[in-house]
Design a protein around this nucleic acid. Structure first.
Lengths: 340, 340
DNA sequence: CTGAAAGCGCTAACAT
DNA sequence: ATGTTAGCGCTTTCAG
């Protein structure tokens, strides 16, 4: 069957050169004659030779492995990031090792560092909300591991973050709602302590004020990015004698919860109440009415992050340090309407 | 900062033993004295020593890396499998490398084999629908790579599959619906050519007949496991002058499509029509009305598959060959009701 | 432009 | 129960 796998020695022997030269070809080093190079490439092809990644890694102190560290209840988001990262990995000969973990664990940092060392990862990409953990980032830096964080604010050197400007995204949403004639708007926020919670809220709030609509304290409910919390918050908001004409939930899960709660109260969406979310999750387009929401360029962010990471691994400082900020976009559907 | 990472030599020197002995301790080999072992373990701890996986792999022809090959539009499913696989990996010192791919690609098999070789994977887990590809499985076998397929029928040796009995699951669904008094039932099937499509259909059909309800040809619509196809199929089914009183869609996406279509036609679910799905995806519990569906034990399957795979890698034949069949369960919610 | 040789950190025969 | 030693397949000074 399959005769033993070819090694660099086989290639060298057949090409009648030293393995050093073959190695040069494999690694695209210059200083190899055209003819020699072509010949070697041909032989590599014929032999169906693939360099052994482990040996390569061992010798070069590289693993060609990238890691992805996350603890995110949102499988869709994770999946999108994964696809984005992988699309770049493919072009660059890297593989992706995934590492979900518990963001509340005491040993999170320790665990993550151990993960990187254990597998000799060349670098890691950290997803929100763990990406907001400065402790982790600090430990990685101290251990000399390359990392890039997906975030909503510049919480690290440009080298280490890719940002989606959620503040401007929610601002756009606020303007859209105001444009529809809404002014008394309910806001379902995320949990305290997360940067993105604050970014989203402030962006929305500021934009509203700019248009002369204040976001009253009683119109802000604190959710937990879950369906259930969306239900509760909406009930609270709608219990107010002076009911809002629109509710913006800072993620889709909560928005769907809000729709559910509103419908239970006999309100028609969007006739009696407009509702919008954030994420453009699969739910958003499946629910009735289809949800107006905000779409983050997740795959793109993941791609950019990976490009930066690999640049850092390769020591291409300039590419690695280039700042990256992307802006989410508004997706208008059927859950919001003009107040006429 | 961080003085150079400790190696096995450092440990050996400090313990005043040969590296061979340290190696034995690392690999839990017997034939090491109690005292020596304890001492070495202590030193390993003190030094915060972690064996270099690449060197280990290179020497032992092992990578401690498992792969996951898939092309599944369902991020939730993938995510669940991933979590299941990883939970076992953690206990066994393995890491997971993910590899999405295009099931319709001509080079799928070649690509997958190359992936495994390139990264020296110790084994791979293959998800449906790619798991049904015998070509791929054959190529892996020929290349001596360990693999386990997640499937709905025993399409390979016990060593290479973990099965979820979807036939009995849809049978249970049929019985449940009949129990509610439904007999004229519409069925939205999956795409032709997939084993699971057939399994689900036959299980449903057979159970129906056992209870004296025939599944008429005109009551079977061929979908594509997508939301849109669910809409179309439901429209077709409901256009029949002798309308069904219930529709079973063979996945949730299509079931949600069916609900959407039915509601557009002015039908109330479940008052005018019962609808059920398959998957228990996130949609199922968020949609209104909440969807009656079937839940596969995805994480469990993934765990079992990983255990088998690692057993095979370790050469523990018996554990590797033990047959595994799991049964999905019925989840009843609000989208189905008794016909009275 | 190319080659010789010294490792990278670990495992596994083979000894003792 | 423990030590010696030869690689695993590749990269990388250092020569030429």
């Amino acid at each position: 069957m399959l005769s033993k796998k070819a090694t660099i020695d086989d290639v060298a022997r057949l090409a009648d050169v030293s393995i050093r030269t073959v190695s040069r070809v494999i690694n695209d080093s210059p200083r190899v004659g055209q003819a020699t190079r072509a010949k070697i490439k041909q032989i590599i092809e014929d032999l169906n030779y693939h360099p052994n990644t482990q040996a390569r890694g061992l010798a070069a102190r590289r693993s060609y492995l990238l890691g992805m560290i996350y603890d995110n209840p949102d499988a869709l988001y994770i999946n999108d990031v994964q696809r984005g990262v992988l699309s770049v990995c493919r072009e660059s000969g890297y593989e992706l090792v995934v590492h979900p973990c518990d963001m509340h664990s005491d040993t999170l940092t320790e665990e993550a560092v151990s993960f990187v060392n254990r597998s000799q990862l060349d670098g890691v990409i950290i997803l929100p909300p763990i990406s907001e953990n400065n402790d982790l980032a600090g430990a990685l830096a101290k251990n000399n591991v390359n990392y890039v964080r997906l975030a909503s604010v510049p919480l690290d050197k440009a080298e280490h973050v890719v940002i989606s400007n959620e503040r401007s995204a929610t601002a756009a949403m606020a303007e859209y709602l105001v444009g529809l004639g809404h002014c008394r708007i309910g806001y379902i926020a995320g949990p305290k302590g997360m940067k993105s919670t604050r970014e989203r809220l402030e962006g929305f709030c500021d934009a509203l004020e700019k248009h002369g609509c204040k976001l009253e304290t009683e119109m802000i409910a604190r959710g937990a990015y879950t369906f259930e919390s969306g239900i509760e918050c909406a009930r609270m908001l709608l219990a107010n004698p002076n009911r809002p004409t629109a509710i913006f939930a800072s993620n889709d899960e909560m928005a769907v919860g809000a729709i559910t709660a509103a419908q239970e109260m006999g309100l028609k969406i969007p006739d009696d109440l407009s509702i919008a979310g954030f994420d453009d999750s699969i739910l958003a387009s499946r629910i009735t009415p289809r949800l107006t929401t905000i779409r983050r360029p997740v795959m793109q962010m993941a791609r950019k992050a990976t490009v930066k990471l690999i640049a850092a691994v390769d020591g291409r400082e300039e590419d690695a340090c280039r700042g990256v900020t992307l802006v989410p976009s508004l997706v208008t559907r059927d859950s919001t309407r003009s107040l006429d």
